[in-house]
């Protein structure tokens, strides 16, 4: 493999004279000047701009895209800090090239190193470091505060957001679409059943909390089986829930609920199964008032913002990494499992239709990354129960695929060609489930290195998918299996190995996954399995499937688990080097291909998609060494 080429014109070069900025860079000079004016008024030496909203959402509404507005960098993860002289962004390897494409030379990009150390170096003693308490999790604040202790630099909570003041009238408005109840056929249990289950968890909790504060948007959406569209690709609405053993308080913009939805929630009473509506903006005052009594409030350290935490006396708060709702939601019941699986069969039809279309049209030279993304998005929208894509489609050809989260635009994209590898990572939101799948293909002659890298990524996917492990094993213990085949030859990937997925909820549904802050694996959980390999400046590979955690049959008795893959699209035979695969790999692959035929074949037949059916049969023929 060759190192990424120098002198590229797609990224900035701030060390050249004059500095080089690509067309994609955003001029932030005026924006920074406006923010620094506000910082001066508040006597701040630095101001922290996080990448999230008041609910610690991974994907946020346009009006919450403060870090993107001030820095130009639009990736979903990354924190900015602005001082009177400097401005800096920290982000992970998925977004380094994107940041170099979008930021101008006012900004430093930090690929590593922690933010508090930089703040300690840049802010003078007695300096005040401002932040919006609603946009920082308790976890983030505690870590930051710990680092600054004894340094004579002080974190200052300011409830007025200074970026918003600088943004002014250009800031997009708040959403106001209706909030609706999901039809019963698409829910695993009624909201009353869910409330009862959560209450019994609270009762059995060692700290016996009197109330549970739900801050993450998917927690409230799940609990009440309600949905809306406040955040792109996510069917959520801005809300909090304060649940006690005798009351339910839902903080929301009431005008967005129809009379029918109000009745569904029993809002005209105050007993234990009635939902009392309070205005969204009242949550801080209401939590503060509730906390003045003889109470104990359970919160999540990851999802609760510091603005709510700071109004609860410390002796009245129980901090857990995740709320019981997160844990209960992660284990899908049999109805939810069936719903999620059904959505994956329809989604496989979409991806297969797309791959067949690409095979016909790429050689004609008529497809680019953007038109491809539009095509697959349109296919999904035509499916039953569709509510659009579950994230911005990643359609990346050649070197662009080396950026794990690259998405093309109408203006800037790359033509698909038989000479390059192509990666498509996409998913749908359907009323019965959320999907997410990645396939990488090559329609011409791949290099030996590309075939080896692809096959090793596939080996990692198979090694993890077929593992048998004890119940309640932490995902992080399994993570190395997905990397083993790559590590053996000195290759790796810079992102996580997988994530939970929701029933018409988050595409990245925490806390299931393979990292240290994920919960232990148990029956009924769904996770993605997605190893990859990225050769900077050349190509990228990712093979992603969604799998259900199921009981494993073992020779000796015991509680053992394995994965049942529910994504049903074959891999690219053109990129598989069978000589690298073990007999176990081949046996697994051929069994998986048989399952694809059984699950998707009848659906293609039913719809008379005969070309796609022929393609499926061809691409799922048994492989041999």
């Amino acid at each position: 493999p060759q190192a990424g080429s120098l002198g590229r014109e797609d990224v900035r070069n701030c060390s050249s004279n004059p500095p080089f900025l690509p067309v994609t860079a955003v001029n932030t000079t005026m924006r920074l000047a406006a923010l620094r004016q506000q910082m001066q008024a508040w006597n701040l030496s630095a101001y922290i701009i996080t990448d999230t909203d008041a609910h610690m959402s991974e994907y946020i509404g346009k009006h919450d895209e403060r870090r993107a507005w001030i820095s130009g960098f639009s990736g979903t993860a990354g924190t900015a800090v602005v001082t009177m002289r400097k401005a800096a962004v920290w982000t992970d390897s998925r977004y380094w090239t994107q940041a170099e494409r979008q930021m101008d030379c006012n900004w430093e990009l930090h690929r590593e190193g922690d933010i508090p150390s930089w703040v300690l170096a840049e802010v003078p003693a007695e300096g005040r470091v401002g932040f919006d308490p609603f946009l920082m999790s308790v976890d983030f604040w505690e870590n930051f505060d710990l680092e600054l202790q004894g340094s004579k630099r002080y974190l200052v909570s300011i409830t007025t957001n200074l970026v918003d003041l600088a943004w002014g009238s250009e800031r997009p408005p708040l959403p106001s679409q209706p909030i609706y109840a999901l039809p019963e056929e698409f829910t695993g249990s009624t909201w009353q059943e869910k409330v009862s289950t959560v209450r019994s968890y609270m009762k059995n909790h060692t700290m016996a909390p009197t109330a549970l504060l739900l801050s993450a948007l998917d927690e409230t959406a799940w609990l009440f089986n309600l949905r809306s569209s406040d955040i792109p690709y996510n069917p959520f609405f801005y809300s909090y829930t304060l649940l006690t053993d005798s009351s339910i308080r839902l903080f929301v913009n009431k005008s967005r609920l129809s009379l029918e939805t109000l009745q569904y929630l029993n809002t005209n009473c105050t007993s234990s199964m009635c939902v009392q509506l309070e205005d969204y903006s009242q949550v801080r005052d209401s939590v503060k008032a509730y906390a003045s009594g003889d109470v104990m409030i359970l919160i999540s350290i990851e999802y609760t913002n510091y603005g709510l935490y700071e109004v609860i006396p410390k002796e009245k708060v129980v901090i857990n990494m995740y709320t019981p709702v997160m844990g209960i939601k992660a284990v899908k019941n049999s109805k939810e499992q069936a719903l999620l699986k059904a959505s994956h069969v329809r989604d496989a039809v979409v991806v297969i239709q797309y791959l067949v279309w690409l095979e016909k049209n790429v050689p004609k030279g008529t497809v680019d990354e953007f038109s491809g993304a539009e095509y697959i998005d349109d296919l999904r929208r035509k499916e039953n129960f569709s509510s659009g894509p579950s994230f911005e489609t990643i359609s990346a050809s050649g070197l662009n695929a080396a950026l794990a989260h690259y998405s093309p635009t109408k203006e800037v994209n790359h033509k698909l060609s038989s000479d390059e590898m192509y990666l498509v990572d996409s998913g749908g939101q359907y009323w019965d489930g959320t999907t997410d799948i990645t396939r990488t293909v090559h329609w011409g002659t791949p290099t030996a290195f590309q075939k080896e890298a692809y096959t090793r990524v596939l080996m990692g996917n198979i090694d993890l998918s077929r593992i048998i492990f004890p119940a309640n094993t932490p995902g992080r213990i399994l993570d190395a299996l997905a990397r083993k085949a790559l590590w053996e030859v000195g290759l790796n990937y810079g992102h996580g190995t997988g994530h939970g997925i929701g029933n018409f909820l988050c595409v990245h549904e925490w806390p299931v996954g393979f990292q240290s802050n994920n919960i232990n694996m148990n029956k009924g959980m769904f996770t993605s399995i997605e190893p990859g390999y990225y050769q900077d400046g050349e190509f990228g590979i990712r093979l992603e499937d969604v799998a259900l955690v199921v009981e494993a049959k073992t020779k000796y008795p015991g509680a053992y688990l394995t994965f049942e893959v529910v994504s049903f699209v074959p891999y690219d035979r053109n990129l598989i080097d069978v000589s690298l695969l073990s007999p176990e790999h081949l046996q697994y692959l051929n069994r998986y291909y048989q399952t694809i035929r059984e699950k998707v074949g009848p659906e293609l037949q039913r719809r008379q998609l005969l070309e796609e059916l022929a393609w499926l049969e061809e691409h799922t023929k048994p492989l041999s060494a």
């Binding site: 932490p474 996580g496 190995t497 595409v507 990292q515 802050n517 992603e544």
Partner: peptide, 24 residues
């Protein structure tokens, strides 16, 4: 879609909790 790698800041707290639950 590829998930981010856990930030080092929260790794310590998370590991402590995970080890506790694992040994239980």
């Amino acid at each position: 879609m590829a998930p981010r790698t856990t930030s080092l800041a929260s790794l310590w707290v998370a590991s402590t909790l995970a080890i506790l639950s694992w040994s239980n």
